[in-house]
Simulated scan of single mutants.
Amino acid sequence: MPDILLRHDSDHIATLTLNRPDARNALSIGLMQALDDELSAIAEDRTVKVVIIAGNGSAFCAGHDLRELRATPTRAAYEAVFALCSRLMQRIVGLPKPVIARVHGVATAAGCQLVASADLAVAADTARFATPGVDIGLFCSTPMVALTRSVGRKAAMEMLLTGELISAARAAELGLVNRVVAEAELAAATLALAAGIAAKSPLTVAIGKQAFHRQAEMDLASAYEYTSGVMTRNMLARDAEEGIDAFLGKRKPRWTGT
């Protein structure tokens, strides 16, 4: 059996490729567990600064593996699957390194959730997105969590209630993806974005990602109080001193990650 998740590291960028092309990279229990385990390991890997999630074959990810779901139709089995999926999506958000989704083909249901959970997303101009659970009697309730944190409420509700596929251009308008490029340029464009981020201080990026998600759940006054404390602690870091001194001295900074 081929590996259902592939990993390739280069220049501080880890590319994790979903490798179930015959199933359009549907998120089976095994694939979700493999992805969760790999991200957990990457969290402690100081050589990795950015993660790219991609898919092999004709699609990025077609959501949950429905055949697998129906094979064990018990409450306990369903609870375990959705708990694992929820843990995986929270792993992506909580990872102290940016995660970029590289999207081609379709990203539907939990596949769309995977895109929405990523920090950034680059899509081929031919890619399409949907949360079509409503069409099969299974509302995309867990994908809704990530979707409503990426796009506006009415846009999210339209996607959830209609199940209709939207284009990459429309996904960019809604804020679900950051950049849309020609399909032939997708890999290079995503790698260029990742490389630009990998060149930053990994400590500063980790601080910023964590603060971004935490302040987003706070009221305005609490968010400013929290981020003021974050900036104070950040200023005391060696990389902040180095970065500011390098800027003032008109030289390239030398990051240590401390």
Rank of each mutant, 00 (worst) to 15 (best):
P2M: 14
D3K: 12
I4D: 08
L6M: 05
L6R: 08
D11C: 02
T15S: 06
T15R: 14
L18T: 11
N19Y: 11
A23K: 12
G30P: 04
M32D: 01
A41I: 08
I42T: 10
V51A: 13
V51R: 05
A54V: 09
F60E: 10
C61M: 03
A62T: 12
H64I: 14
L66Y: 07
R70C: 11
R75S: 07
E79Y: 01
A80T: 11
C85Y: 11
R87W: 01
L88Y: 00
M89C: 07
R91Y: 01
V93K: 08
L95Q: 01
V99G: 00
I100P: 01
V106M: 13
A109G: 10
A118Q: 00
L120T: 03
D125L: 10
T126Y: 07
R128S: 15
T131P: 09
P132Y: 10
G133A: 09
D135H: 15
D135Q: 15
C140W: 12
P143Q: 10
P143H: 06
V145E: 15
L147H: 07
L160Y: 04
E164G: 13
A168K: 04
R170W: 02
V177W: 04
N178S: 13
N178K: 10
R179T: 11
V180G: 01
V181A: 10
A182P: 02
A184C: 07
A188N: 02
L191M: 09
A192M: 00
A194T: 03
A195E: 01
K200R: 13
T204C: 03
I207S: 00
G208S: 03
F212Q: 13
F212S: 15
A216Y: 05
R238M: 14
A240H: 10
A240K: 08
E242N: 07
I244N: 08
D245P: 13
A246C: 15
F247W: 13
R254K: 15
T256A: 11
